[in-house]
């Protein structure tokens, strides 16, 4: 299938992109990596009147570590992040998650900002951002603002981004010595969207895990924190944490698995990820 007709504009600057978004019919879409958007256009599942290409705007890509935060420009490609020593060292959860995203050709083109903004509930990066308690920089008609990951994902493919907003960067706390991360997912085939996945982050102290953040994906309309399980895990009981998932999560079935299976798999993931979190760091 071929896309419905649309117009194409290459934004010269952020301001230009925001100006272009101001179409009266609101039917403009931002084009970042395009790895999800163009597929939906080709399937005629969406038919915007205008595509605004962000790829020509300078300064939107790149990885920097400052003030104990890792800042990743929205247009940073997955492959670039995969190769980045800064990501490997300061954002190990992202490094763990990246190889699970699509395939080589997809990662060459797909962007981190695009993935967060698209907010597919089965995607890896939104959950990672949530697990890390990251923040999202947004520029809109009224200027810049920053939104916490916990407040960003609103509903199925809905985020805190307004119709005239552009996501410009994400920021994550850089991993400290005491930071532990874990990541695992079940997907039927390598690179597929996950049936269920879990991104996790915690701080270790002498006794156990603190500040546990468990972010599930593929189990609801948005990436979800399993807050009761977080508490149980902080208290030191994996079994109780797994049990708590039944009240944290209520996944619906889809073509791959029933809701009950997804909930079960969420528990399996929790045991595996908890083990990763508790591993002594070499």
């Amino acid at each position: 299938m071929k896309p419905s007709p649309f117009a194409y504009a290459k934004a010269k600057s952020l301001d230009h992109a925001i100006e272009l978004l101001a179409r009266p019919d609101g039917e403009a879409r931002l084009l970042a990596g395009g790895q999800s958007l163009i597929a939906t256009l080709n399937l005629r599942l969406s038919a915007p009147k205008l595509l605004i290409d962000l790829n020509g705007i300078g300064g939107l890509a790149g990885i920097a570590v400052k003030n104990d935060m890792v800042e990743i420009g929205a247009m940073t490609r997955h492959a670039e992040a995969e190769r980045s020593a800064d990501i490997a060292r300061h954002a190990p959860l992202i490094a763990l998650a990246l190889p699970h995203i699509g395939h080589a050709a997809i990662r060459n083109r797909g962007t981190l900002g695009g993935s967060i903004a698209f907010a597919d509930p089965a995607a890896e990066l939104p959950a990672c951002l949530l697990a890390l308690g990251g923040e999202i920089d947004i520029v809109g008609p009224t200027g810049k603002r920053t939104v916490q990951a916990d407040d960003f994902f609103k509903g199925l493919f809905e985020t805190a981004l307004g119709p005239r907003d552009v996501l410009t960067a994400i920021r994550l706390p850089a991993a400290a010595n005491d930071t532990r991360v874990g990541f695992a997912e079940f997907s039927r085939r390598h690179g597929d969207y996950a049936m269920v996945g879990l991104a996790a982050c915690a701080q270790v102290d002498g006794k156990g895990l603190g500040d546990v953040r468990l972010a599930y994906f593929g189990v609801g309309n948005v990436p979800l924190r399993a807050k009761k399980a977080e508490t149980r895990l902080t208290e030191g009981s994996i079994d109780d944490a797994v049990k708590a998932l039944a009240s944290d999560l209520d996944p619906s079935g889809d073509v791959q698995a029933t809701g009950a299976t997804k909930l079960h798999l969420a528990g399996v993931l929790l045991r595996r990820v908890a083990t990763q979190l508790m591993e002594v760091r070499s």
């Binding site: 194409y8 790895q35 399937l43 050709a105 060459n108 083109r109």
Partner: peptide, 24 residues
């Protein structure tokens, strides 16, 4: 497939392999 799954359209753009159906 035209939805980015099969890889038959793979080409190189600026040195990187990409899906030819997922770029305009």
């Amino acid at each position: 497939c035209e939805h980015g799954v099969c890889g038959a359209c793979t080409v190189r753009v600026d040195g990187d392999v990409v899906r030819g159906c997922l770029m305009l």
